[in-house]
Every structure is written in C-alpha cells, then in structure tokens.
Design a protein around this nucleic acid. Sequence first.
DNA 1: TTTTGTGAATTGCTTCACAGCA
DNA 2: TGCTGTGAAGCAATTCACAAAA
Lengths: 214, 214
Amino acid sequence: MSKPDNIPAPAVRRLSLYLRHLETLQPTDRQTVSSRQLGDALNLSDAQVRKDLAYFGQFGHPGVGYRVTELIHRVRRILGTDRTSDVLLVGVGNLGRALLSFHGFREKGFRLVAAFDNDPRKIGTAVSGTDGIRVQPTAAMPDVVHTHGIRLGIMAVPATAAQAVADEMVVAGVKGILNFAPVRINVARGVSVSTVDLAVHLEQLSFQFSGCTT
Amino acid sequence: MSKPDNIPAPAVRRLSLYLRHLETLQPTDRQTVSSRQLGDALNLSDAQVRKDLAYFGQFGHPGVGYRVTELIHRVRRILGTDRTSDVLLVGVGNLGRALLSFHGFREKGFRLVAAFDNDPRKIGTAVSGTDGIRVQPTAAMPDVVHTHGIRLGIMAVPATAAQAVADEMVVAGVKGILNFAPVRINVARGVSVSTVDLAVHLEQLSFQFSGCTT
DNA sequence: TTTTGTGAATTGCTTCACAGCA
DNA sequence: TGCTGTGAAGCAATTCACAAAA
C-alpha cells in the first residue's frame, strides 16, 4: 500500500518539522490542530501543510482539523520512528563523544548502541555518559550491525578518512549515514547519506549580511 | 554593484559546496576546472554549475573553464569569508565544548572567540583545547559582541532555553544564529537563523527505507 | 576545438480556490 | 460555519541548446 513516490523532497523534510511541533502540543490539553495553526507555528501556508500531509494519506477531519495524537502516530509510522531503532557511531573524537552522550535521540526513536574508532588508545575504553558503551575497532562493525539489526550510522571522523569509513559502513550493512565530515560521500544505490557541514551553515549566515553591507 | 537579489536560495547553498570542492583542488597542480568537472564532483549538471556561478558575476573563461584560485577568492568574497570573522558560542554543554575545540572553522574564516553559559559552576572555567577561552555569563554578551565586532553566534542550549537565549543574542547585536536546539526560533527582520536538528536528519534517513520495506 | 553565459523550454513546487464533509 | 483534500493556476528552479569567446 505504498504511496506513489512522487513526493517532493521538501515535503518529507517538513514532515519531521510537523512531528516536532505536534510533540510539543501533546502535553497540552489541545486535542486537535488545524492546518492553519500548524502552518503559523512553522511559517508555512495552510495549503502547504494540507498538501504535504495529503501526500501520505488522509489524516484530517473536515470541520475539525487533525487529531494531535493520531497524527503523531501516523507521521512516526511514515518516518519509521514508531519503533525505536538502534544506531551506531564511528569516530569517537570530541564531536562523537558529545553525540554519544546526547540523550535527545532516545525520545525520537533512536538509540545509540555502539561506538567505533581505530585509534588503539581509544579501543576498549568506555564512553562516559552512555551506560557502558565501549569503543570497538571498525572491523567489528559487520558483526554488530548484524546482531543488532542496525540500519543507521553517524559518522564523525576527519574528512580525509570519511569516504573509506563510509565504505566500511556500507559493507557492514548500514543503509543510512549521517555524515559530519565536510566532504561529499559516494555510496551504492539503496544507501543514503545526509551531510551536516557546520562551516557551510556558517557561510550561509555570513552571506546574508555580506550581501547588503558592502 | 550588488547583484539583483533574484538569487535562488539553493544556488547560495551550492556556492558553499563549490568552494569546499575548489579548496580540495588547490593543493593539486590543477589550474582550472570546467563546469562539467565541478558538477561531476558534486552530482550536479554542468548547466547548473554555470547558472549558479553566473548569478554572482562572470568568473569563467570560455574554452578554458574557471581558474581555481581566482574562483576561490571570488566565492569567498561573496560569502564574506575572505576576512576572518569572530564567532561566539552560547551553551557550554557536551556539544558546545566539542564545537569550541573544533579547529576546522579556522581555515574556513571563522574564529570562536568567546563562550557563554549561565550555569554558575561553569562561569569562569577555561575550556580545554581552546587556548584560553573562559566561560562568561550571557549578561556579558553585549560588551563582547561590541568590542569584537561579532555578527555570528552558535547556540547549543536546551530547547526550552533556546528562544530566550536567541533573544538575548539578538539584543546583544548578533546578526546570524546557528541553532542546534530542536525548535523554531523567531527573530527580528535582518537577523537570520539556520537550524541543525540532528533528530530531523536521522528521521529523513529513516524515511528512505521505511518507505520501501513495509 | 572547448567551454562559458544565457534566453527558452521544461520540470517541479507552492499557492489558489472551491467542492465536499462534519 | 469550519476545515480538509485536490485539481488548476501560478511561480520558481533546473535543464536545454546555442551564440560567442578563446
């Protein structure tokens, strides 16, 4: 019963934002939201919200709006976060350790369960703030991926190592890579990569005012 | 001599990626790149590359391509990273400390020069790996922003504090905020925000295969 | 030749506007 | 009345294709 994948990529991105906002609504006593209210909260038109959600099914109730808890469940199912999934991390540097001890992933349906690094001084050490995750060599990835049924990996390694590490992850069976190295990563079909480049974000902000001031 | 700002936002985003790739080319002996070569490296069409660059001026040489070092200088000037700019950080938690000790910003034209946090136990302490940055209370922001001429700030605080902290940053004079809290931030006109939500990125990856497998 | 810069054609996303349901 | 879902219209971004330059 999968929808025809004519779904615009921007619509999928916004789906996560809808979910994020809906989750802030749940603790309140509000039972329903209209497309207009959702749009106002995210700076989008009401039509945009309705069209986005309609790509994935009929979730709304005419004259009423969208029921908050119902929509949360539906969106989580679509994103695949209705069940918790295990995630691994490669690269236990400063950023890697920060990500490992970040507990915000849990409530979003992601659980960091393993950490890898090839620095001999790190292998075997426990990562603080993680109830017992120990650093393993990347050679152990295939085993861990298989036994935990892992599909997602976070990569926080230097740019020079990134492509090689990504290749190892893919061979091990990882299907989605969140990449923090400032390089384009090439992967086989069926695997996806999402790159977060901090310098690129700063450059975008920098551009905003360098345009007007000069 | 500013270009008419009919420039598509996606073109500006890609400009950073062009720069990133050009910088990897500079150490090699290659003097020029064609739009096709640049496009191949980034999975874009040659026409896309030419059109993007043409929004900002005429940088190419027909029959030759783009001269690498020339284009690097031009793009940096456009992005405002031809001069190093000082950046502040608010929120000295695990992520904040990781960002402070990340030296990759330097070569991109950004220098982290100050750190703020309102936890009394952190104020006054030095942040390791940062040649001497000491944590200050956020009340000190206006002074620091003024004396350093700071325009950019990174915000690594809990979601619950994010909007209030952002307001303080804007009052202090910050013009661009890189936000790591998973909430939408509202700011005055003339200020821009770029949000990096790690959970959202994982959800996007998760969506890729939850679509096909079910 | 090779390769840029750019109008024209095309694709794709967003907004409009309204029928239909509660 | 209030609100959704959706075809049609409108707009923005990408690709095409070619004249001009080296």
